[in-house]
Design a protein around this nucleic acid. Structure first.
Lengths: 226, 226
DNA sequence: CTTTTTAAGTGTCCTAATGACATTTATTTT
DNA sequence: AAAATAAATGTCATTAGGACACTTAAAAAG
């Protein structure tokens, strides 16, 4: 039963953030063949000596590229086939992850082989393997999640305003939402506490919120309307 | 970069059906070590010569055990770690699948190493590997899907009545639902056509429905209430 | 042949989360 | 002090589902 050659098994990460009201994904320039010098998703081979699980491997790969752990990480799905890698039948487990932009900025600025690219400009770049497809599926999944949960908050720093969260959600789902609806959801989710501080970027100062230490991700029973 | 030993990569299937108003899962008796003679999920190694993708592999494994293709098949998630297989670091991609019970019954009756077991009696059986965990996650995922889609219909034969679909859904989500709500969803989903025929199992004959040939799975914007 | 029984299916009102949007509040700028 | 504006709230409309009474179509009983 074990006479088969084990297929090539890898991990890929679709790490998102939102900056300048745009959804962006972290891409790295490949240093080796195949697809050398093309943009690709950060990932690689599992090292059973270093990684206790596929999740641990994904985190390690992201840490290497950004210098920090992502705020959110979840399996997307497995992509497989004979066509996706010129070396033969290949299997990759794709994760999608979220983090605040500035958390990684200092680290990313020091390297030239990693870069945030807006997801809506990706069609202009030839990406390695089937990474275009993987990103498209990750975007779709994130969009869905944004309709029935507040996971987009993981694209923000630890403390944030309602307006910032609104901007992130709108960037992800690509349409405006009602501030009132968002505030009701923040309240109902019971995931956040109002920080004893406000920020005044413009006129009236905005309340800062942060995740409760033990907060579970609350799932709403309805989607935001189409 | 490829100096690592490739981890053991396998496929596992959680194949569900509903019979006697109970959610059941197909288990097979292991013929080889480890966990020989214990109940386990049908699965195995990918054969790149036979399988065009991991999905194709999952379908092949299920076909071998049931004689037919499942009506529904979807990736659940990858399970990995050093503890789950005594042979070392192991990675398995678990699928969950749905089918009508009688479609496989004749085939399963001829073998003694495959059997439908009610998910609520599984704690009495020592399952191989971490299959108990995998099944629990598959059940949770199916439950969720049953709240915002009509995927449970894939547990039924091609033609079915509203009452049958109601029974399947109630078995999955473990609480009664309103027939009226289900009929509204059947109508709104636009996934089915009323067959020009009725069945009279009891008193007033019931309308038969079947999936439209090209039907997409409709996702409702609200969950059935908790 | 009429009445009873019962599962199938419909009508109708209630409920709750969200959308829409007007209104109020707090702060900066003029 | 007044104007401007982003933040936050009040309130009514909308909509899908829940509850449940009611009707319908057939079989069974009398």
């Amino acid at each position: 039963m074990e006479q088969y050659q084990n297929p090539l098994f890898t991990i890929d990460n679709v790490l998102f953030t939102v900056a300048q009201a745009e959804l962006k994904v972290l891409l790295v320039k490949r240093a080796i063949e195949p697809f050398i010098d093309q943009w690709s998703l950060p990932g690689g081979f599992v090292d059973p000596l270093l990684d206790a699980s596929v999740e641990a491997c994904a985190r390690r790969k992201l840490q290497e590229k950004t210098g920090v752990a992502p705020s959110y990480l979840e399996q997307l799905k497995v992509f497989s086939g004979h066509q996706r890698d010129p070396r033969g039948f290949a299997v990759t487990l794709a994760f999608y992850a979220l983090m605040g932009e500035q958390a990684a900025q200092s680290h990313i600025d020091t390297v030239h082989d990693a870069q945030w690219l807006p997801v809506h400009q990706l069609q202009d770049y030839p990406l390695a393997f089937d990474h275009q497809t993987i990103i498209a599926e990750a975007v779709a999944r994130l969009k869905q999640k944004a309709l029935y949960s507040l996971v987009p908050v993981y694209c923000l720093p630890a403390q944030f305003t309602v307006t910032e969260l609104m901007t992130v959600i709108e960037a992800i789902i690509e349409r405006p939402i009602q501030r009132k609806s968002l505030m009701r959801r923040i309240e109902a989710s019971d995931m956040f506490i109002a920080v004893d501080e406000k920020v005044s970027t413009g006129k009236r100062p905005a309340q800062l919120y942060q995740l409760k230490p033990d907060a579970d991700i609350y799932l709403f029973e309805r989607n935001l309307a189409e």
